[in-house]
Design a protein around this nucleic acid. Structure first.
Lengths: 224, 224
DNA sequence: TGTCAATTGTCAGTGACTGACACTAGCCTC
DNA sequence: GAGGCTAGTGTCAGTCACTGACAATTGACA
């Protein structure tokens, strides 16, 4: 309720000893979990092992993360928001596909720092590979992806001044685009160059093949 | 080893009392499970409730189905094979997208009987809706879908005499196509006409919008 | 300093799933 | 058609993810 609180310029105000401890515990759990997942494997890691590494009770783990799965997607979650933000910032004159493409590529260029605030980048990349190669995690990953698709479709529809439910083109375009993105992620996970750079290159190259396959200007023909 | 065995003309020889009992148990478990899932909800149904309805032990359930999830996809599994078969039977002159489209539509026309041999169609349709609306099942559904995508991409590549790993077009086309199919399934699940017919109509209509977006002839331009 | 509220730990319990072992019932041979 | 073989089943004990309830602790704030 008080008006004046010392807000740091960048990090969104973590003030308070309590808040600080909470963040520390969460970070420690996150790192310990990812470290174990990427060395021992996801299925082979028990929640007990994670909490033992951080010296908290199992109950505390589940207060921070709704499930063992969720902790694996904590960083991914941030990356996704990063992309959505990038898409929102694309100039209105860009065609849907062009905007999505540019958003992805520009997001990859700036995501590095944001990730490092949470975990070492290399740990994130290894985690991504674990996700892609662990059936249970891959399944959740895909569901999360299509949830995001719906949001993006609405975003695209807004840009183009269309109604998502009346005009199928936003959803179709996003579905096709996301299909390619997902495929890229998988190929990257299977490949042997786990670098941000390689991910970016792969993305760019595959999206190049979608461009000629999807028409760019929706408003060239008849528009009601 | 004996030459003469009374093989029925259609069903693939279930001879033997043992085999017969097994099939009966499996069928009973399947039906009981789907019935419970669709009335009570997936998460709300325990494996104990399923086995109680069939009077077998829990251990037996897990000998027939690797997990509680698997039983929900038993029928879906058959439908998928049905589609792949339909795709294989498409004449070679059809373009990739055309072949996939025709395979889906023709599969929908003949799938009815095959389903009825396992469970009432209406039960299958309701199960599909449960899958689409239950997060845990939706996730698995999506993973299964992309596993199938890879197979289809290879099939398409074969048809077009291309190498899946050298030429990205098969995977891109399949990814885009599947993206639309998945979206259709979801919309159907959300809608209020749970009939085979409505599913077919929706599929056809949405695929119509992909056609103009993806080029039909891959071999019109330069071909190495 | 003392009160309030947020965090945490402990404990007990549920539900999915698995390995081990004993038991039963088709199946096949003599 | 008795007896042995084996596939299928039930029982039991145990692991692991996850949850509700309650008590203990510890920042926050007057």
């Amino acid at each position: 309720m008080t008006a004046e609180q010392p807000t740091s310029p960048r990090t969104p105000a973590p003030a308070g000893l309590r808040e600080l401890k909470k963040r520390r515990t969460r970070d420690a759990l996150l790192r310990a979990a990812l470290e174990l997942f990427t060395t021992r494997g996801y299925e082979e890691t028990t929640v007990d092992e994670i909490v033992d590494a951080v010296d908290v009770s199992q109950r505390t783990f589940f207060r921070y993360f709704a499930s063992k799965e969720e902790v694996a997607f904590a960083v991914q979650h941030m990356v996704e928001r990063h992309f959505v933000t990038a898409l929102r910032e694309r100039p209105a004159h860009e065609a849907p596909l062009e905007a999505m493409r540019n958003a992805v590529l520009s997001a990859w260029d700036t995501i590095g720092e944001a990730i490092m605030e949470l975990v070492p980048i290399e740990l994130y990349l290894r985690t991504f590979q674990v996700i892609e190669s662990t059936p249970a995690l891959l399944a959740v990953h895909l569901r999360r992806s299509i949830e995001m698709e719906e949001n993006i479709a609405r975003l695209i529809a807004d840009r183009e001044d269309l109604d998502v439910d009346a005009d199928p083109r936003p959803r179709v375009a996003v579905a096709a685009f996301s299909g390619v993105m997902r495929m890229t992620g998988q190929l990257w996970g299977r490949g042997d160059d786990p670098s941000l750079r390689s991910m970016r290159t792969l993305t760019e190259s595959y999206l190049d093949h979608l461009e000629p396959a999807l028409a760019a200007d929706w408003h060239g023909g008849a528009r009601a």
